[in-house]
Computed example of a mutant assay.
Amino acid sequence: MAKIYEKEINLKDYSKNELLDFYQKMVKIRKFDENLIQLIQDGKVSGFYHSGIGSEGVSVGSIVNNLRDEDFIYYNHRGCNQKIAKGVPLSKLYGDFLGTLEGTTKGLGAGIVHSADPERGVLGQAGTIGSQLGISVGSAYSAKFKGTDQVTLVYFGDGAASREPLHGSLNWAGLYKLPLIYICENNEYAISCHVSETHSVKEHIADWAEGYGIPNCVVDGNDVLQMHEVVKEAVERAKRGEGPTFIEAKTFRHRGHFEGDPYDYVDPEVLQDWKENRDPIKNYKARLLNEGICSEEELIKLDEQVEEEVAEAIKKAEDSPLPGPERIYEGLFS
């Protein structure tokens, strides 16, 4: 059975800059998301968007100060969270959704964007739900084959975890002791199906990993510091050559599966509880203030810096031109 990861964390074990960096990056992700939703409502973005509001702690906690540019990630359905935490510039992401040349795809794939940023270790996402689980085995094996200390993090939701690719991936990762960290972002709903309707395991999705000999645990994904510590331990294990780790991060999305989803399949009281009592940014902010790490004024200043950064990123993306017809042939090799 998967263990519950609950580490006693003393904020004094972190520097003030580290603690404020976690806060600022979570706020940046949320502000990016809120402003992108506004662009969608203004009719400037076509296609779907899957909001990650409510699960910022999973991405920031797992990536920031744990991964280097040379370490790999495969993001999930709400992957803008992870791409921002890995350092992809906001203007590049806004450019992707607006379809301008500023985007990482330089004008291709506006709407649902499957993009990559290899220089920052962002290797993208596969075309079907969960298929990144198989590809992640490849990058993890490449690091083992070359003898580097690179690690791969693969993100997926509880819905993807109910599909067969997870089991094939776990088998090979366990067999070859690959430097691969599985992060299941369990927000309880695969579109509109509750996790209890899609999994035969009775307790935790992380229990699947037990059968493949892979260490596993369940963590509060909305606690950015718990998330940081559990992934830090997994990264250290991987670098020592001790193989993969499976982490199930409990969280909840504040919005529907996609923008336009009425989200009427969730009990309003349950949703309100997650928003009011279990919000990762709200709770972390309260802890910083209660333990005297910083003042309210310092956090307001960080919020203002994020607002300015987001506004500049949107302007840069909007001012960038749309691609000409010749763009379709760039990168075409056959």
Rank of each mutant, 00 (worst) to 15 (best):
A2T: 03
K12F: 05
K12S: 07
S15D: 02
L19G: 03
D21A: 14
V27E: 06
D33Y: 06
E34N: 12
I37L: 14
D42E: 15
G43F: 10
G47P: 08
G54W: 09
S55Q: 15
E56F: 05
G57F: 05
S59V: 09
G61Y: 03
S62R: 06
I63W: 05
N65Q: 04
L67Q: 06
R68K: 15
D71T: 03
Y74P: 07
H77V: 00
H77Y: 04
R78A: 08
R78V: 07
G79I: 10
I84S: 10
K86W: 01
V88N: 09
S91Q: 13
G99S: 07
T100Q: 09
G103R: 10
T104G: 13
G107M: 06
H114K: 14
A116I: 15
E119Q: 14
E119Y: 14
T128M: 14
S136T: 02
G138I: 03
S139M: 05
K144L: 10
Y155H: 11
Y155N: 09
Y155L: 07
Y155I: 08
G157R: 02
D158G: 08
D158M: 06
S162G: 00
E164C: 14
E164W: 15
E164V: 11
L166S: 00
G168S: 15
L170N: 01
W172Q: 15
A173S: 02
L175N: 12
Y176A: 08
L180T: 05
I183N: 06
I183K: 05
C184H: 03
N186Q: 12
I191S: 11
C193A: 12
H194F: 07
V195H: 15
V195D: 13
E197K: 10
H199N: 07
H199Y: 01
S200G: 13
K202T: 02
E203D: 11
H204I: 01
G211A: 04
G211D: 03
G213M: 05
G213D: 05
D223R: 02
K232H: 07
A234W: 00
A234S: 01
R237D: 01
R237C: 01
A238L: 04
A238F: 00
G243R: 01
G243L: 03
F246R: 00
A249M: 06
A249W: 05
K250N: 14
H254V: 10
F258A: 13
D261F: 04
P262H: 07
P262A: 04
D264W: 07
V266K: 14
V266F: 05
V266Q: 12
V270L: 14
V270W: 13
L271S: 14
Q272F: 13
E276G: 08
P280A: 05
P280E: 08
Y284V: 02
K285V: 01
R287M: 03
I293Y: 00
C294G: 00
E296D: 01
E297T: 01
L299K: 00
V306P: 04
E308H: 10
E308S: 10
E309I: 02
V310R: 10
V310D: 11
A313H: 08
I314N: 08
I314H: 08
A317N: 05
P321I: 00
G324F: 08
P325R: 06
E326R: 11
R327V: 11
L332A: 14
L332Y: 12
F333L: 12
F333H: 13
